[in-house]
Structures are given as structure tokens and as C-alpha cells.
């Protein structure tokens, strides 16, 4: 059975009299341990898909199953629990708490989980041992993103969702981050889904899903994904 399954999922927004179909009966599956890239132009619905998979938003139609659970039927409080234990999120703009140090930011997440990973260790694995007592304002963009990844990982989630993780970073740092994500996927067997509008990243993925106008226009599996170092954009 697929790890994640979206079946005819719909999401509509109403703005006054205008109806916007963000997701128009989209369907796809994701297997456990895959590195998935969801690509598409602006406004295609990529972020909406991520929000729904991540339990940040609910869908108006269709069903979504994650690891055998019908998440699309969850009530808000159950969704919170789902987010808490099963999901790790990484954003384009890091979203760290500015008043907490790097270590504390990771602790913030590990404190609320059942069996978290040790924050200091995780930070170390991200190469930030000597930066753990710095505030986000004292860290570079790449370092902040690494803290964010550490935070997501510390929760020991079932899957990691990354919304344009390299969007605010320069080319070199961006590649570093991508590499980190790929390693996480490979080494820990973590299912990682990355949203991007940059198709150049596609070769790295085990599975590529292209979304346009709220529908999945192309789903391709890649048995031999490329290494991050080899791609250019």
C-alpha cells in the first residue's frame, strides 16, 4: 500500500462571489522513504497540497491517507496531534523563533514529542555544534535553514515537508541544504517531499509530481536519482 495517497482531493476558496479551485480533484501516491519533488508554476497549488498533507489545512473533497490513517477525516485537535508527532516542516523563510537560540529552537520542538531525538546531537549532525547558543539573527541564512531542518528532524516524524527550502538561499548554500535533505532521506529512510518551482532540482527526486492548475499533470518515478552535486541551475 502507498505510504501517502491522495484521491480526488479538492480544495476551493471562496473570495466573495469568486470561487477559486486551488486543488481540482488531484490524485497521486508516495511510497515510504522516497525523495519526492512537487514542481509547478506559481499558483499551481503546490503549497496547498503541502498544507493538506501537513495537516495545516483541510480539504473540501476527496480523501487522503497517510500511513494507513484517513487524515482527511481528522478533526482539528487530531490534526494538531498529527502535526505534532508525524510531520516535520521546513519553510522557505525558516520561521525560527527569534527570541530563542538555535538549540532552544530545536528544544522547542523536541519538548512536545513522545520520542524525540536529542537536540544537541541533531544540531551537531547539521554541523552547527559551535553555533547552538546563537540567536537566529546571528546566523546566516543557510545556518538558519539547517536549524529549521534540525528542528523538523528532532521530532522524529514520519515525513518531512519542505516548502521551497532553497528559495531564500544562494546557489551554493541552496545545494548544501538540498544535499542535507537527500542524505536525511537516504540515511534515515525518511520520506521527504520538497516543493519547488525550480525544475532543475527534479533529477534528484525518486518521484517527480508536476502540478498545474490544481491537477497533477505528470507523475514520474526515477529509479536512478542524481546526486545533488551533479545538478546545476
Amino acid at each position: 500500500m502507498a505510504f501517502i495517497e491522495l484521491d480526488e482531493v479538492q480544495k476551493t476558496y471562496r473570495m466573495g462571489e469568486i470561487l477559486i479551485r486551488a486543488l481540482d480533484r488531484i490524485s497521486f501516491t508516495v511510497e515510504k522513504g522516497e525523495f519526492v519533488v512537487i514542481a509547478g508554476p506559481s499558483g499551481a497549488g503546490k503549497t496547498t497540497v503541502l498544507n493538506i498533507i501537513g495537516g495545516m489545512d483541510t480539504c473540501d473533497g476527496g480523501r487522503m491517507v497517510v500511513d494507513g490513517d484517513l487524515v482527511s477525516a481528522y478533526a482539528p485537535r487530531r490534526l494538531t496531534k498529527y502535526r505534532r508527532h508525524d510531520i516535520g516542516f521546513v519553510f522557505q523563510f525558516y520561521n525560527l523563533v527569534h527570541n530563542l537560540t538555535a538549540l532552544e529552537n530545536v528544544e522547542l520542538a523536541s519538548q512536545i514529542c513522545d520520542n524525540p531525538l536529542d537536540p544537541a546531537t541533531i544540531l551537531g549532525e547539521m554541523g552547527l555544534s559551535d553555533r547552538k547558543n546563537n540567536f537566529p539573527a546571528q546566523l546566516s541564512g543557510g545556518e538558519q535553514q539547517r536549524v529549521a531542518i534540525a528542528r523538523a528532524l528532532a521530532k522524529n516524524p514520519k515525513l518531512m515537508l519542505c516548502d521551497e527550502p532553497t528559495g531564500a538561499l544562494d546557489y551554493v548554500t541552496g545545494k548544501q541544504i538540498l544535499k542535507l535533505l537527500q542524505q536525511t532521506c537516504t540515511n534515515r529512510g525518511m520520506t521527504v517531499i520538497v516543493i519547488t518551482h525550480n525544475l532543475a532540482i527534479a533529477p534528484v527526486a525518486d518521484r517527480l509530481i508536476r502540478i498545474k492548475s490544481g491537477k497533477a499533470t505528470e507523475i514520474k518515478t526515477n529509479p536512478h536519482p542524481a546526486k545533488v552535486e551533479s545538478i546545476e541551475w
Binding site: M56, R77, T80, K81, Y82, R83, R84, H85, I87, F89, N95, L96, V97, H98, L108, A109, I112, R151, K155
Partner: peptide, 15 residues
């Protein structure tokens, strides 16, 4: 923004 991040991380409403 901070509060939204907390909710996102999975903080219950009460927390």
C-alpha cells in the same frame, strides 16, 4: 508569526 509557528509545530491550543 511566532504563534503560527508554534501551532504548526504541533502545539495544542492550550499550549
Amino acid at each position: 508569526r511566532e504563534l503560527a509557528t508554534l501551532k504548526l509545530l504541533g502545539f495544542y491550543d492550550r499550549e
